[in-house]
Design a protein around this nucleic acid. Sequence first.
DNA 1: ACAACATGTAGCC
DNA 2: TGGCTACCCTGTTG
Length: 571
Amino acid sequence: MAPLTRAKASSSRVAPILIQRDSDDSDHYHSSSSDYDDEEQVGAGDSSDDEDMGTNGLPTSEELHHEPPNTTSNAPPRITISLKKVCKVCKGTGHEAGFRGATYIDCPRKPCYLCKMPGHTTMSCPHRVAMEHGVVPAPRRNTSTTLDYIFQRQLNPNIPMIKPTFVIPDQLTCGIIRFHSRRVTCLEFHPTKNSVLLSGDKKGQVGIWDYSKLHEKTVYNSIHTCIVNNIKFNTDNDGTMYASSSDGTVSCTDLETGVPFVLLDLNPNGWIGPAAWRMVYGMDINTEKGLVLVADNFGRLYFLDTRSRTRAGGPFLIHKKGTKVVGLHCNPVEPGLLLSCGNDHFARIWDIRRLEAGSSLDNLRHGRVVNSAYFSPRTGSKILTTSIDNRIRVWDSIFTNMESPSREIVHSQDFNRHLTPFRAEWDPKDPSESLAVVGRYISENYDGVALHPIDFIDTTSGKLVAEVIEPDITTISPVNKLHPRDDVLATGSSRSLFIWRPKEDIERMQEQLGKKAKEFIIRMGDKKSKGKGSIDSDDDSDLGFKGKTSKTKKYEKSYTSGKSKKSKGVC
DNA sequence: ACAACATGTAGCC
DNA sequence: TGGCTACCCTGTTG
């Protein structure tokens, strides 16, 4: 690693400030001593004990000390300024956490930022060096009996025993930069119109975009007033979408008019303080029974009737009282089975025909908050969950003992107040129900650019199948959805939307359509064209991307010349 | 290149 | 239980 020097200490200060080399630096945290050798320490050799600087220590990067007046001479009181390296994570000195170039250096005093275990950092984490090692063996792993196998085959005759080759949409084909005015919070493909994507944002806006006709896009901003948590369709009527929001309402909106009908309002009396404000998070539709199932931030589940548009049941307490129910999912084969997950660190399975508090069929314990929990898309017999303890968990069969997951896959997906929570999503087209997509929080240094890939994970092995990146997308992509029929991936990253396809598809399209199939990007309301998270391209330009930064160019060379290469780490 | 800031909530006491 | 408050890889603007 080429050591990068820190920003230079100010050299314009006036006397009587002493500039001294700080010999304290040769402490135990000298893992990369050469990084700091040239650094000038400004200070008076204050003997404050660095080692005692715990997390409660208060030194800032510039410590001002007013020394007691010097009684033995007429010299003015000396002000000493200490510019020691202070770690922004633990406030200790002698080391610093943060980016050095495009590589992030962890605080060595904290547990690993990836796997959360002490004793090493992300850089040396075994789950990072080789992603196939990211699987934590669960106690019951590989303990299936022959009977289990037969049972499984009878119940799941559609699961082929030979795993198909995974199709990875890893090439960016189009996108809308800053389509939303706040970060994207959810995505949903239209159930019948193949190229129509719906998106919700933190502000409450709902976007409708036909990405086959790049400019065909609409934004409705009067459906909700804050975070759109979920968008769903009722397959009986694909002209109508349902949305749940942190404004406490569930809406049913005609896509043509954008006029919403409020199915549920949990705050009928308006704002009466933050403690009483109710929000709707989890939502799914039980087509068989004509129900919209929603859940709030107080642990309760509600049934709404899609025909009469009235409340048809609830509230039922399904998670710890007062905690947020983040997600709901109806089993695709047995719609009476409901999977919920929430902030009480549990995912729970319910029979909605026999619902009462505490009547869950199974309770799946997690290390921390569960962001999402989904039944597998075809047979509904597997479960995939995402938790902010940086683990994706897989239960291989809901018909066996659910006490512990079949696998825990270490994957970076921490909570961050500025980000939409990560959710690992099944590939609905994978007949083996193995492939999942999920954005990655921590970045990787790709030839000098810090990028956050979108990961494709084989949930049967924990192996990282692919990491999808685009040199110009430097923002984190927590929201990802795979198309139910096409080989298309939709991504929500910050305020932008992106569409990816497999390389082979793009080549085929280019052969058939020529120029028309070239990459194109729309930019919304952006005066400047350069900068983080933006893509340098003219609107709808035939030339697609152009005018890239030198960094990008450098990167692109190695990217297009073969498989994605990284300067650090192997995944 | 850098600083300021917006900002929700998880987990603790 | 309610009330605080820390908050490590943000993203945007100036």
